[in-house]
Design a protein around this nucleic acid. Structure first.
Length: 687
DNA sequence: GCAGCGAAAATATCT
DNA sequence: TTTTCGCTGC
């Protein structure tokens, strides 16, 4: 009989112990109360710029100082960038212990858990992660197999189907409901779509494939069904902190509940007025229901804004009031003076770009560094014209959001080879790799994949009855993969071999623009350098797609931190001295695709609110009054309906004028706005 | 069963 | 503008 020894309870944190940080002195009263709140559920509702991040950073430090072990703190954020930044700040505040805090996105944390316990929900531990387009490819494969595309009535495309399934998973709705809300025209195919969904799920399970949604859903399933695992995982999460709680979806909210199910110490931070991920299933209801989910919640509100000047807040407050669903937000600040935000009606895109460049150079002369300034926009492509102008003037910039390097077809090709080399069971990657060989189409690829899955030595690719048309290429591929897998070859060398093998394919498949794509492959080779192993590289690519940033200008200004270009979504949680919001056009912000319902329009409005409240000191909102569009030619635009009747005392109209001589355009602040020609085509269509 | 061609459709935000 | 679909000929 074993003897039982009872350990003393760990001492509760004592607030009055020797704290190295003066919490009361460095935080305001509300922030201090929230940061130093004891155990139990805590909800911090914080307006934009009220020191949400700061409070969370101090809370991490406080918890550690009062005895929490860093490993027992879980900090969930929306991007890896946010986690890194927060833990970095906490480390500066306290010390290196903060770096041992577990932090990251929901997806990344779920991945860690599943890598360990996937078998409990019927998956191999070495499952492959599918990004959205991989998932779409699988769906396409199954769809062709069933001959659904040959049905007489139009059947949704692979991307549409993928969106559909993703929406259903993230919102916890039936396919029928999602279909009715988003694509009612496809309701007639409900049965087939439903069948296909089941086939998709089964295929993923059979082949060990996990898409983004599965990362969350499987973790929920795991923790709900395996009590031992739940105890273990939740037991290790003594303190759970969640940033941007307003943007959690149903699965994520459930995960928070499960992670906190042992200790009950959850701190959620959020702002219902900044919920901008509804399209991805985010549910503002989560933050509103938090006190019900976690009885005994203590609520803290942060209302004093430290970021922006009063004129900027006045505009933001005014804009937010237009929401159909009202938010009781009224931010105030002690920075009562400041420049009025400007509304710049530029004649066209070129002028808008010139304005941004001239203005930012002027501000830089006056002492604002480039990386304190940001240009924000609704969609990735909104900045193309500006990027050209920045390049021309050799102004260094980085772009966040928009197209990802890892989404480009040629990069996906290369990555697929790496995936195959890593995992011989990765059917999606095999398919892609094989189809790149001339003469191999979907059918042959599928047969070969089946051979590979059953083969003892898959990498020989010595399948029987191979057509002589592509036998040689297939042998080359086999040799490549075997060489890449040789033990002593470091990752960069593997990629070197791979790129050599891929070059002819690149030239053949993308013959029109292969030089440009070859450049991307160069940058990819550079990115590879920083990774320890193939597996590590693949994992990080899957969860943290690389922004297709302007690497070519970096060389010219290595010493100066670059200007930030970012989609509004990617700028969430960040702040800048100066913000330029460009392309503030109806049809863009709000997006023309969002005009269907008030809810969607409200989300666009919140997006504008988020953009405006990123600014600390200077805010410029601009739009071109004439745009060129193929087919239609030049046509007049409408400024964003959200800005249409903002009084001039809140948003000062500017017009642009050309300087006399050959100098670049310089701006003047004129008295009268140059209004776009009156049009009532509010859908932004050419006339 | 594959490649190539012309027509048609979709077109964003992110992990 | 770019991607996807369906058809045709090899």
């Amino acid at each position: 009989m074993a003897r039982r020894f009872v350990l003393k309870k760990e001492p509760a944190p004592v607030a009055s112990s020797n704290l190295t940080i003066d919490y009361a002195g460095e935080l305001n009263e509300q922030q201090h109360a929230a940061a130093t709140a004891g155990p139990g559920p805590v909800l911090i509702v914080a307006g934009a710029g009220t020191g949400k991040t700061r409070t969370l950073v101090y809370r991490v430090a406080y918890l550690i100082e009062t005895g929490a072990r860093p490993e027992e703190i879980l900090l969930l954020t929306f991007t890896r960038r946010a986690a890194r930044e927060m833990l970095g700040r906490a480390s500066l505040l306290l010390d290196g212990r903060c770096e041992r805090v577990r932090g990251g996105t929901f997806h990344a944390f779920c991945l860690q858990i599943l890598r360990r316990y996937a078998e409990s929900v019927g998956y191999p531990k070495s499952f492959t992660i599918l990004d959205a387009s991989d998932a779409a490819d699988v769906i396409d494969l199954l769809r062709s197999e069933r001959g659904l595309h040959r049905s007489k009535k139009r059947f949704p495309k692979k991307r549409t189907l993928q969106n559909l399934y993703s929406a259903a998973a993230n919102r916890g709705l039936d396919l029928a409901d999602v279909l009715e809300q988003t694509y009612p025209q496809f309701l007639i195919h409900l049965d087939e779509i439903d069948d296909l969904a089941r086939a998709f799920a089964e295929y993923k399970r059979r082949h060990g494939l996990v898409d983004y949604d599965d990362l969350l859903a499987l973790t929920v399933e795991l923790l709900e069904t395996d009590e031992a695992v739940r105890k273990k995982v939740a037991g290790a999460c003594r303190w759970v902190l969640v940033d941007e709680y307003q943007d959690t979806n149903r699965l994520q909210a459930r995960l928070v509940e499960l992670f906190a199910s042992e200790h009950g110490n959850v701190t959620a931070v959020g702002d219902d007025a900044q919920s901008i991920y509804r399209f991805r299933g985010a549910d503002v209801g989560n933050i509103l229901a938090f006190p019900d989910t976690f009885p005994g919640t203590r609520l803290f509100k942060l209302e004093q804004n430290y970021r922006s000047t009063q004129p900027i807040l006045d505009l933001a407050n005014f804009v937010l009031q237009r929401a159909k669903r009202k938010y009781e937000k009224h931010l105030y600040t002690e920075k009562t003076t400041g420049e009025k935000p400007g509304l710049i009606a530029a004649p066209d895109d070129r002028w808008q770009s010139r304005f941004v460049c001239d203005m930012l150079l002027q501000l830089r002369e006056e002492g604002t560094t480039l990386n304190q300034m940001a240009v924000l926009f609704r969609s990735g492509y909104n900045s193309y014209d500006l990027e050209v102008e920045l390049d021309r003037r050799r102004i260094p910039f980085v772009k966040y959001g928009g197209l990802k390097l890892t989404e480009a077809a040629h990069i996906k090709d290369v990555v697929a080879h790496l995936r195959v080399a890593e995992n011989p069971l990765d059917v999606v990657a095999w398919n892609r790799v094989l189809k790149l060989i001339e003469g191999i189409g979907p059918r042959t690829a599928q047969d070969l994949v089946e051979w590979v899955l059953a083969a003892e030595q898959p990498y020989t690719l010595a399948a029987p009855a191979v057509s002589p048309r592509f036998a040689a290429r297939l042998r080359q591929l086999g040799e490549l993969l075997q060489r890449m897998r040789a033990d002593d070859i470091p990752l960069p060398a593997q990629v070197e071999l791979l790129l050599q093998y891929y070059q002819p394919t690149l030239e053949q498949v993308y013959f029109e623009d292969h030089p440009k794509r070859a450049q991307d492959l160069e940058s990819f080779a550079g990115i590879v350098e920083g990774h320890r192993s193939r597996a590590a590289l693949l994992e990080s690519l899957a969860l943290d797609p690389i922004d297709l940033t302007a690497t070519d200008v970096e060389g010219t200004h290595k010493d100066e931190a670059p200007l930030i270009l970012s989609t509004i979504h990617s700028a969430k949680g960040l702040e800048f001295d100066t913000v330029f919001l460009i392309q503030a056009l109806d049809g863009i912000l709000p997006s023309q695709y969002a005009a269907k319902s008030d809810e969607e329009l409200d989300e666009e409005l919140r997006l504008l609110y988020v953009a405006l409240t990123r600014a600390e000191r200077n805010l410029f909102v601009s739009y071109p009054t004439v745009q060129y569009r193929r087919r239609a030619g030049d046509f007049f635009t409408n400024p964003s309906r959200f800005l249409a009747d903002v009084p001039e005392r809140l948003l000062e109209p500017w017009t642009l004028a050309e300087e006399d001589e050959a100098e670049p355009a310089q701006l003047e602040a004129p008295a009268r706005p140059q209004l776009p020609p009156a049009r009532d085509t509010s859908d932004g269509l050419p006339f």
